[in-house]
Design a protein around this nucleic acid. Structure first.
Lengths: 196, 196, 196, 196
DNA sequence: TATGAATGAGAATTCATTCAT
DNA sequence: CATGAATGAATTCTCATTCAT
């Protein structure tokens, strides 16, 4: 199509930014470092992204898309809401395990600036939360989960538990616990808490 | 080391910084704005604090000291680990409710950049988590809580649940849920999950 | 030297640049905007012009050639120096009226920076001025105009009067005066001033 | 008053900018060069001025204030409108002669960008023009000047004549004519043109 | 010739920090 | 101790120009 090829520059920049942001933090990362890491000129970045903030947002959305697809794929064909929650926990933590850089950025950088969190609607994240919410509602309809549980609260509590645990896992150098054990502990505890 | 000669200035700066950081985020806050808010000269800030980072750290430690004292005070004289956890949840969320600015900073700014979190040990936070950990261990020793629960994981999960719920509460403009209801839902669920 | 292979492209670029420079000013105009306006690729412009400066110079010379031809054509066959001056004034202002974009560029952009005016000899403009100078000299030889008038000064004064008036006319949104009335006032006054 | 003195920095920057703008043109002048010329740090400039454009505007207004005062002072106590116009011409050209840098900036740089001329109201200049306009009106009321002359046109024509002549004088390296002769030629011609 | 993606030098501006008063 | 004017290093972003196709 185009004469001088795209050559995957868009994704190369995203990948480079992921590494650089994870290493230095968003505000201490320089466009020029991302450019060097991606093997493009500084100016090239501005062909693919509006500005530095835009890189972070695109990076997040790109990843969120993949995460959502992956999660939905894992849950596909499952019936039992309890099984689904267990799978959610395991899948989430395994993802963190395999994408440390990405995880660090989402947990640390993207939460950072009020400017970001307030202005940026973050639909991907809300959809992710809703996967949990829907499982809970489904369980309640089937009479498996307690009716008095508020899905809007419980979905956040469940996610928050997973998230805090994985933040710890990401930031600590020695990995004390196996990710599978942790996933089990959290989903078992949560299920015991909301099951009838 | 930051001096504390006082005059009220030290605390005035901390208070000003709390407001300014909460409004703009750490990286978008200017020393000069904090100075104006605190009604001191820019240079005066450097008599009380090493640098901008130091303000955030002191701010956090100052606050954490108060939070820890408050929490310990609330739990004082209580015996039942289940009651303690309920009290913890309620006290935590009430604190968030009454210190929105502070809450936003702790949740958003202090989670920041590796630069910060990796180097700064954040003992206050660890001690806060350990309050939960100790309650769980105590419950296990008394035979009330399941022995197989890992306190190191559970304390983070419980805190994470409270934290995620309160992040949502802080960031959303309309407060859909009453903080007390939320506290109850989370502690009830968690207790049901770990009790024998 | 700029090529002129043509295809219409050369003139299309000149025309596009005229509009763009008039709208944004030379320094705030982007090559890419001119290219889009001319419906050619950015790179194509560099086939027809050396660089951005060259576009302005060519634009000016192209236009000046036309202006000079037009003026000489209007004066052709006229004998009376007084009539010639009146015609000059009217023709000049009518040109401004019909070529607002061009007028704005000549008045504003080409007067630019020493960098430009000092190095660029601007012969077209000097020839334009000399039309006035020659009319004055002719009038003096015929004994109609005062001998003590310095043609080198008077030609500039006459042109300056027309130019300042037309700058005002170009820049103001409401056109208070009719261009023909203005032309008459200026030439009448000037003639009354230099006639014997 | 202030601890570390102003030390005339504001005026030093204006003076430095005048030299630098006159030498390179506005768009080719670098803030850092102005700073070096003024013997201040780059950042210091931004204490006294909003941005680069602001320097040009302040420079112009500062100068215009002086020019207006000077002109009004010269005309003070004069009665005869004809004398006043002669004085205006001479004073204007002498000013140019003594402030070449300033003159070049006003004539060349300030006219430059449409952005400037269109957005910036330029009251100083309008007041300067009105000095001429008022003299003409006064002369008409006294019956000395022709009633049919439009002051709104004539003031611009007179100014334009002086301005074009002085542009030439400023830009050419060899000064062919004495400024006083030029002033006389222009005012004599103009007066002969509008007198009854 | 024509294209337009890629380049990278260049400059304006910001703001934490200092230090003479 | 307190001040706040001054500093200048640091970084984003722009855009004229090139050149592989």
């Amino acid at each position: 199509m185009s004469k001088r090829k795209d050559n995957g520059k868009y994704h190369r920049i995203i990948a480079a930014a992921t590494r650089v942001f994870a290493k230095n933090g968003f505000y201490h990362s320089k466009i020029s470092e991302i450019a060097k890491e991606a093997q493009v000129a500084d100016g090239t970045i501005y062909i693919y992204f509006e500005n530095k903030d835009d890189i972070l947002i695109c990076l997040f959305e790109e990843q969120m898309k993949a995460v959502l697809e992956n999660m939905n794929h894992q849950l596909e064909g499952m019936d039992d809401p309890s099984e689904k929650l267990k799978t959610f926990a395991l899948t989430h933590l395994e993802l963190i395990e395999h994408n440390k850089d990405m995880a660090e950025i989402i947990q640390v950088e993207l939460r950072q600036s009020g400017k970001f969190m307030k202005e940026y609607k973050n639909e991907g994240f809300l959809r992710y939360l809703d996967i949990i919410g829907n499982i809970i509602t489904e369980g309640q309809q089937k009479g498996i989960f307690k009716a008095q549980v508020l899905p809007g609260v419980a979905k956040r509590a469940f996610f928050g538990a997973l998230d805090e645990v994985s933040r710890f896992w990401v930031l600590s150098s020695r990995k004390e616990y196996d990710i599978r054990v942790v996933a089990e502990q959290i989903s078992d505890c949560f299920l015991a808490g909301i099951r009838n």
